[in-house]
């Protein structure tokens, strides 16, 4: 298990208190789960993602991440329409473990209200949340 000071917490993403991350890329928001989340889950063996074109509100469950031990829900950091999913995770679910902010991304969202990003946690606020867990 990683110590808090070993966690990768990039400056260019924001976090939810359910351990998803969201990164603004142009008009879209890319979403995945944090290094802390993947470390807690262990080997990710299956990722269930929504259909492209489906819409969710902030906080809605949009899929599941399955590890050897458990199945966990993943929640929308912002409201919007799913415009892309990471097809590569079907054959390489382990990308969520090895590169959670890169090749392990999950969905890309066209946000309905980009200001929802402001309500998410920055690196320091997220770290504080982890210290309290």
């Amino acid at each position: 298990m990683k110590e808090l000071n070993e966690l990768i917490l990039p400056e260019d993403v924001k976090f939810t208190d359910e351990h998803e991350w969201a990164r603004v890329e142009g008009d879209h928001v890319r979403v995945g789960i944090s290094d802390y989340a993947q470390d807690q889950l262990g080997d990710v063996v299956f990722v269930e993602l929504p259909e492209v074109g489906s819409s969710f509100n902030k906080g809605d469950e949009f899929g599941t991440v399955e590890s050897v031990k458990t199945v966990s829900e993943i929640y929308m950091p912002v409201s919007g329409e799913v415009v892309a999913i990471n097809e590569e995770l079907a054959d390489h679910p382990e990308y969520v473990n090895t590169d959670p902010y890169g090749k392990g991304w999950m969905i890309e969202v066209a946000p309905s209200d980009l200001s929802e990003m402001d309500s998410l946690l920055d690196k320091n606020a997220y770290l504080k949340l982890l210290e309290e867990e």
Binding site: M1, Q40, G42, K69
Partner: peptide, 23 residues
């Protein structure tokens, strides 16, 4: 650095680096 959890009243390792590889 094992991922530890309570089992039967004991602090036990669930996995070290990869439960899949261990299996």
């Amino acid at each position: 650095g094992a991922n530890m959890a309570e089992f039967g009243g004991y602090d036990m390792p669930l996995w070290y680096s990869s439960a899949k590889n261990e299996h």
